[in-house]
Nucleic acid binder design. Structure first.
Lengths: 118, 118
DNA sequence: GAAAGTAGTTTCCTCTAAGAAACTACTTTC
DNA sequence: GAAAGTAGTTTCTTAGAGGAAACTACTTTC
Protein backbone atom coordinates (compact mmCIF):
# COMPACT_ATOMS: atom_id res chain seq x y z
CA UNK A 1 0.00 0.00 0.00
CA UNK A 2 1.40 3.32 -1.08
CA UNK A 3 1.64 5.99 1.58
CA UNK A 4 -0.61 8.95 1.05
CA UNK A 5 -0.68 12.60 1.97
CA UNK A 6 -1.92 13.14 5.53
CA UNK A 7 -1.74 16.84 6.28
CA UNK A 8 -2.93 18.20 3.00
CA UNK A 9 -5.49 15.50 2.32
CA UNK A 10 -8.35 17.16 4.22
CA UNK A 11 -11.02 19.00 2.21
CA UNK A 12 -10.11 22.27 3.94
CA UNK A 13 -6.49 22.01 2.85
CA UNK A 14 -7.45 20.98 -0.65
CA UNK A 15 -9.54 24.12 -1.00
CA UNK A 16 -6.83 26.29 0.50
CA UNK A 17 -4.19 24.89 -1.83
CA UNK A 18 -6.46 25.40 -4.81
CA UNK A 19 -7.16 28.95 -3.68
CA UNK A 20 -3.47 29.73 -3.42
CA UNK A 21 -2.90 28.38 -6.92
CA UNK A 22 -5.80 30.47 -8.21
CA UNK A 23 -4.48 33.66 -6.65
CA UNK A 24 -0.99 33.01 -7.94
CA UNK A 25 -2.10 32.37 -11.49
CA UNK A 26 -4.08 35.63 -11.56
CA UNK A 27 -1.35 37.67 -9.89
CA UNK A 28 1.64 35.98 -11.52
CA UNK A 29 4.45 37.88 -13.15
CA UNK A 30 6.82 40.60 -12.25
CA UNK A 31 4.55 43.60 -12.63
CA UNK A 32 0.95 42.96 -11.56
CA UNK A 33 1.30 43.99 -7.93
CA UNK A 34 3.12 47.15 -8.94
CA UNK A 35 0.46 48.09 -11.46
CA UNK A 36 -2.41 47.34 -9.09
CA UNK A 37 -0.69 49.13 -6.24
CA UNK A 38 -0.16 52.19 -8.39
CA UNK A 39 -3.77 52.22 -9.55
CA UNK A 40 -4.97 51.94 -5.95
CA UNK A 41 -2.88 54.98 -4.99
CA UNK A 42 -3.63 57.19 -7.96
CA UNK A 43 -7.01 56.47 -9.46
CA UNK A 44 -7.46 57.02 -13.17
CA UNK A 45 -4.18 56.90 -14.99
CA UNK A 46 -3.36 56.84 -18.69
CA UNK A 47 -1.08 54.34 -20.39
CA UNK A 48 1.84 56.75 -20.44
CA UNK A 49 1.21 57.68 -16.81
CA UNK A 50 1.52 54.04 -15.83
CA UNK A 51 4.61 53.67 -17.99
CA UNK A 52 6.20 56.46 -15.97
CA UNK A 53 4.94 55.34 -12.59
CA UNK A 54 5.84 51.68 -12.83
CA UNK A 55 9.58 51.94 -12.79
CA UNK A 56 11.33 49.79 -15.37
CA UNK A 57 8.35 48.38 -17.23
CA UNK A 58 8.24 48.55 -21.04
CA UNK A 59 5.31 49.14 -23.36
CA UNK A 60 4.90 45.51 -24.32
CA UNK A 61 4.73 44.17 -20.80
CA UNK A 62 2.51 47.01 -19.60
CA UNK A 63 0.09 46.44 -22.46
CA UNK A 64 -0.02 42.71 -21.85
CA UNK A 65 -0.38 42.95 -18.09
CA UNK A 66 -3.14 45.55 -18.37
CA UNK A 67 -5.04 43.21 -20.68
CA UNK A 68 -4.65 40.35 -18.22
CA UNK A 69 -5.84 42.46 -15.31
CA UNK A 70 -8.79 43.82 -17.27
CA UNK A 71 -9.79 40.32 -18.33
CA UNK A 72 -9.86 39.28 -14.68
CA UNK A 73 -11.84 42.39 -13.81
CA UNK A 74 -9.28 43.79 -11.45
CA UNK A 75 -9.00 47.01 -13.46
CA UNK A 76 -11.19 49.01 -15.83
CA UNK A 77 -10.15 50.48 -19.16
CA UNK A 78 -12.08 53.47 -20.49
CA UNK A 79 -11.36 55.17 -23.80
CA UNK A 80 -12.04 58.90 -23.50
CA UNK A 81 -13.51 61.00 -26.25
CA UNK A 82 -10.56 63.36 -26.45
CA UNK A 83 -8.14 64.48 -29.15
CA UNK A 84 -5.73 62.93 -29.20
CA UNK A 85 -7.40 59.84 -27.82
CA UNK A 86 -6.65 59.06 -24.19
CA UNK A 87 -7.39 56.04 -22.04
CA UNK A 88 -8.21 55.94 -18.35
CA UNK A 89 -7.17 52.93 -16.38
CA UNK A 90 -8.63 52.54 -12.91
CA UNK A 91 -8.97 49.92 -10.24
CA UNK A 92 -12.29 48.11 -9.87
CA UNK A 93 -14.00 47.55 -6.53
CA UNK A 94 -12.99 43.98 -6.90
CA UNK A 95 -9.37 44.84 -7.62
CA UNK A 96 -9.34 47.05 -4.54
CA UNK A 97 -9.92 43.97 -2.37
CA UNK A 98 -6.27 43.17 -3.07
CA UNK A 99 -5.14 46.08 -0.91
CA UNK A 100 -4.70 44.01 2.28
CA UNK A 101 -2.73 41.38 0.39
CA UNK A 102 -0.44 43.97 -1.15
CA UNK A 103 0.02 45.55 2.27
CA UNK A 104 0.99 42.21 3.76
CA UNK A 105 3.43 41.59 0.95
CA UNK A 106 5.00 45.04 1.37
CA UNK A 107 5.16 44.81 5.16
CA UNK A 108 6.75 41.39 5.05
CA UNK A 109 9.33 42.63 2.57
CA UNK A 110 10.17 45.59 4.78
CA UNK A 111 10.63 43.31 7.81
CA UNK A 112 12.80 41.00 5.72
CA UNK A 113 15.08 43.88 4.74
CA UNK A 114 15.45 44.95 8.35
CA UNK A 115 16.19 41.43 9.58
CA UNK A 116 18.85 40.94 6.92
CA UNK A 117 20.61 44.22 7.69
CA UNK A 118 20.12 44.31 11.45
CA UNK B 1 11.57 68.65 -19.50
CA UNK B 2 10.64 65.03 -19.33
CA UNK B 3 7.63 64.16 -17.23
CA UNK B 4 8.41 62.16 -14.15
CA UNK B 5 6.63 59.72 -11.91
CA UNK B 6 4.39 61.49 -9.40
CA UNK B 7 2.58 58.87 -7.37
CA UNK B 8 5.39 56.43 -6.90
CA UNK B 9 8.14 58.98 -6.55
CA UNK B 10 7.73 59.52 -2.81
CA UNK B 11 10.23 57.79 -0.49
CA UNK B 12 7.39 55.80 1.10
CA UNK B 13 6.31 54.37 -2.23
CA UNK B 14 9.88 53.66 -3.27
CA UNK B 15 10.36 51.57 -0.15
CA UNK B 16 7.02 49.82 -0.60
CA UNK B 17 7.80 48.95 -4.20
CA UNK B 18 11.21 47.66 -3.24
CA UNK B 19 9.66 45.61 -0.45
CA UNK B 20 7.18 44.04 -2.83
CA UNK B 21 9.99 43.13 -5.22
CA UNK B 22 11.96 41.64 -2.34
CA UNK B 23 9.06 39.50 -1.15
CA UNK B 24 8.32 38.33 -4.66
CA UNK B 25 11.88 37.32 -5.39
CA UNK B 26 12.06 35.29 -2.18
CA UNK B 27 8.65 33.70 -2.63
CA UNK B 28 8.72 33.32 -6.41
CA UNK B 29 7.89 30.10 -8.17
CA UNK B 30 5.05 27.68 -8.27
CA UNK B 31 5.73 25.76 -5.06
CA UNK B 32 7.10 27.91 -2.24
CA UNK B 33 3.78 28.86 -0.69
CA UNK B 34 2.63 25.25 -0.82
CA UNK B 35 5.78 23.99 0.85
CA UNK B 36 5.76 26.69 3.52
CA UNK B 37 2.05 26.21 4.16
CA UNK B 38 2.55 22.49 4.56
CA UNK B 39 5.45 22.96 6.96
CA UNK B 40 3.39 25.40 9.03
CA UNK B 41 0.61 22.83 9.35
CA UNK B 42 2.68 19.76 10.05
CA UNK B 43 5.95 20.56 11.71
CA UNK B 44 8.92 18.34 11.02
CA UNK B 45 8.55 16.51 7.77
CA UNK B 46 10.99 14.41 5.77
CA UNK B 47 11.80 14.85 2.10
CA UNK B 48 9.50 12.00 1.09
CA UNK B 49 6.74 13.32 3.35
CA UNK B 50 6.87 16.66 1.57
CA UNK B 51 6.95 14.92 -1.79
CA UNK B 52 3.68 13.23 -0.84
CA UNK B 53 2.06 16.27 0.76
CA UNK B 54 2.81 18.81 -1.93
CA UNK B 55 0.62 17.48 -4.68
CA UNK B 56 2.29 17.35 -8.08
CA UNK B 57 5.81 18.42 -7.18
CA UNK B 58 8.79 16.35 -8.37
CA UNK B 59 12.05 15.56 -6.62
CA UNK B 60 14.08 18.08 -8.55
CA UNK B 61 11.82 21.02 -7.86
CA UNK B 62 11.30 20.05 -4.22
CA UNK B 63 15.03 19.74 -3.67
CA UNK B 64 15.73 23.08 -5.30
CA UNK B 65 12.92 24.95 -3.55
CA UNK B 66 13.92 23.55 -0.16
CA UNK B 67 17.46 24.80 -0.73
CA UNK B 68 16.15 28.25 -1.66
CA UNK B 69 13.95 28.42 1.41
CA UNK B 70 16.71 27.22 3.69
CA UNK B 71 19.11 29.77 2.28
CA UNK B 72 16.62 32.50 3.09
CA UNK B 73 16.13 31.05 6.56
CA UNK B 74 12.46 30.38 6.16
CA UNK B 75 12.92 26.69 6.89
CA UNK B 76 15.40 24.52 8.79
CA UNK B 77 17.00 21.31 7.55
CA UNK B 78 18.22 18.82 10.14
CA UNK B 79 19.92 15.54 9.27
CA UNK B 80 18.98 12.89 11.83
CA UNK B 81 21.36 10.27 13.09
CA UNK B 82 19.21 7.36 11.93
CA UNK B 83 19.66 4.38 9.66
CA UNK B 84 18.79 4.87 6.97
CA UNK B 85 19.52 8.54 7.17
CA UNK B 86 16.48 10.80 7.51
CA UNK B 87 16.09 14.55 7.28
CA UNK B 88 13.68 16.77 9.18
CA UNK B 89 12.45 19.90 7.50
CA UNK B 90 10.66 22.41 9.68
CA UNK B 91 9.54 26.01 9.54
CA UNK B 92 11.62 28.64 11.30
CA UNK B 93 10.13 31.33 13.52
CA UNK B 94 10.91 33.69 10.75
CA UNK B 95 9.21 31.55 8.15
CA UNK B 96 6.15 31.36 10.36
CA UNK B 97 5.70 35.11 9.98
CA UNK B 98 4.46 34.31 6.49
CA UNK B 99 1.29 32.76 7.89
CA UNK B 100 -0.82 35.95 7.60
CA UNK B 101 0.33 36.47 4.03
CA UNK B 102 -0.52 32.92 3.06
CA UNK B 103 -3.89 33.31 4.73
CA UNK B 104 -4.61 36.47 2.77
CA UNK B 105 -3.59 34.77 -0.44
CA UNK B 106 -5.80 31.77 0.27
CA UNK B 107 -8.78 33.87 1.37
CA UNK B 108 -8.56 36.09 -1.67
CA UNK B 109 -8.43 33.04 -3.91
CA UNK B 110 -11.51 31.56 -2.24
CA UNK B 111 -13.43 34.82 -2.72
CA UNK B 112 -12.32 34.93 -6.33
CA UNK B 113 -13.68 31.42 -6.95
CA UNK B 114 -17.00 32.35 -5.39
CA UNK B 115 -17.33 35.58 -7.36
CA UNK B 116 -16.61 33.80 -10.63
CA UNK B 117 -19.15 31.06 -9.99
CA UNK B 118 -21.80 33.08 -8.15
C1' DG C 1 6.50 70.04 -42.06
C1' DA C 2 9.15 68.37 -38.08
C1' DA C 3 8.71 67.21 -33.19
C1' DA C 4 6.36 65.51 -29.55
C1' DG C 5 2.58 63.47 -27.36
C1' DT C 6 -1.37 60.08 -27.26
C1' DA C 7 -1.69 54.39 -27.10
C1' DG C 8 -0.33 50.73 -28.18
C1' DT C 9 1.54 46.28 -31.59
C1' DT C 10 5.07 43.52 -33.70
C1' DT C 11 9.36 41.26 -34.18
C1' DC C 12 13.27 39.17 -32.53
C1' DC C 13 15.90 37.54 -28.95
C1' DT C 14 17.47 35.38 -24.45
C1' DC C 15 17.04 33.29 -20.12
C1' DT C 16 14.77 30.78 -16.72
C1' DA C 17 11.12 27.93 -14.65
C1' DA C 18 9.52 23.65 -14.75
C1' DG C 19 9.01 18.73 -15.60
C1' DA C 20 10.13 13.73 -16.88
C1' DA C 21 13.18 10.16 -16.40
C1' DA C 22 17.14 8.03 -15.09
C1' DC C 23 20.69 7.68 -11.86
C1' DT C 24 23.59 7.50 -7.17
C1' DA C 25 24.19 5.72 -2.61
C1' DC C 26 23.16 3.61 1.42
C1' DT C 27 20.13 0.36 4.60
C1' DT C 28 16.74 -2.65 6.05
C1' DT C 29 13.42 -6.12 5.30
C1' DC C 30 11.66 -10.28 2.99
C1' DG D 1 20.12 -11.07 -3.28
C1' DA D 2 15.94 -8.57 -4.74
C1' DA D 3 12.67 -5.05 -3.25
C1' DA D 4 11.62 -1.10 -1.05
C1' DG D 5 12.60 2.83 1.54
C1' DT D 6 15.71 6.83 2.85
C1' DA D 7 17.35 11.55 0.15
C1' DG D 8 18.50 13.50 -3.17
C1' DT D 9 21.43 14.79 -8.19
C1' DT D 10 21.93 14.85 -13.15
C1' DT D 11 20.52 15.22 -17.79
C1' DC D 12 17.57 16.55 -21.34
C1' DT D 13 13.86 19.10 -23.05
C1' DT D 14 10.21 22.48 -23.68
C1' DA D 15 7.08 26.45 -22.78
C1' DG D 16 6.74 30.83 -21.31
C1' DA D 17 8.39 35.20 -19.17
C1' DG D 18 10.49 39.14 -20.11
C1' DG D 19 13.03 42.86 -22.65
C1' DA D 20 14.91 46.03 -26.57
C1' DA D 21 13.85 48.29 -30.55
C1' DA D 22 11.25 49.47 -34.29
C1' DC D 23 6.87 50.35 -36.07
C1' DT D 24 1.72 52.06 -36.69
C1' DA D 25 -1.59 55.72 -36.43
C1' DC D 26 -3.47 59.82 -35.22
C1' DT D 27 -3.20 64.97 -33.39
C1' DT D 28 -1.44 69.08 -31.77
C1' DT D 29 2.10 72.38 -31.20
C1' DC D 30 6.15 74.96 -32.76
Amino acid sequence: MKKKSIINDTPVCQIRMQAISDSMSILSGKWKFHIIGTLIEGNKLGFMDLLREVDGIGTKMLSKELQDLEMNQLIKRKVMNTKPITVQYSITEYGATLAPLIDELANWGVKYRKSVHG
